[in-house]
């Protein structure tokens, strides 16, 4: 599918996310980043990837890299069920707002974050939050959407994917990171 917004009318403007064709690229971005953060919303807990959910991939990635995970909405509970304690839990508005602050990081050290990997927010909420980051955090932060659907306000985004392709993309990223 072409890289166009999943919700057809969510048109971003002239600058659109570069499409991630090879999921390996995400592990390269992660390797280069000094202070990445993973943001995981409720839809990541609601989608069945054949007996697992995107959360299971995220936990693999987080365990292999020690990247802090920030859960939004009430997604925290799903992580706890899997014996993984996220670094923080807050509303998607709160994490978006804080990421615009060049003096803020999850741990309070080495602020700011320079890379945010985002998935699982309600599509149109993610869309406007990422638009906020594009205009108010562009000096220090790059954004990557790992959502199943193309999110044009990020710097990079997956294209619109089938469930199977999405599962494959997330699996490859986890494998690549675990290799390192």
């Amino acid at each position: 599918m072409a890289a166009e917004p999943w919700q057809r009318y969510e048109i971003p403007g002239p600058i659109k996310a570069a499409v991630i064709k090879n999921p390996e690229m995400v592990s390269i971005l992660l390797k280069k980043a000094k202070k990445p953060v993973l943001i995981v919303g409720h839809e990541a807990a609601e989608i069945d990837l054949g007996g697992k959910t995107p959360i299971d991939h995220i936990i693999r990635i987080a365990r292999a890299t020690n990247i802090p995970v920030v859960t939004t909405a009430h997604t925290m509970a799903e992580f706890l069920k899997r014996d993984f304690k996220p670094a923080a839990s807050m509303t998607s508005m709160d994490i978006g707002n804080r990421l615009t602050d060049p003096e803020w990081s999850v741990s309070g050290e080495d602020a700011p974050h320079d890379l945010a990997l985002i998935l699982g927010m309600t599509y149109y909420v993610g869309f406007v939050i990422e638009a906020g980051l594009k205009s108010f955090a562009f000096n220090h932060l790059k954004t990557v959407s790992l959502d199943r659907y193309y999110q044009p306000h990020c710097n990079w985004s997956f294209p619109n994917l089938s469930i199977e392709e999405w599962d494959r993309y997330l699996t490859i990223i986890a494998q690549e990171i675990e290799k390192k």
Partner: peptide, 23 residues
């Protein structure tokens, strides 16, 4: 305020559209 632009453009007057993204 934390702003959440719906679109990067302003199209209110005939000098526009203007791209207001990224500063």
């Amino acid at each position: 305020p934390f702003y959440l632009p719906f679109c990067d453009l302003c199209c209110l007057c005939t000098m526009g559209k203007c791209d207001l993204s990224k500063g």
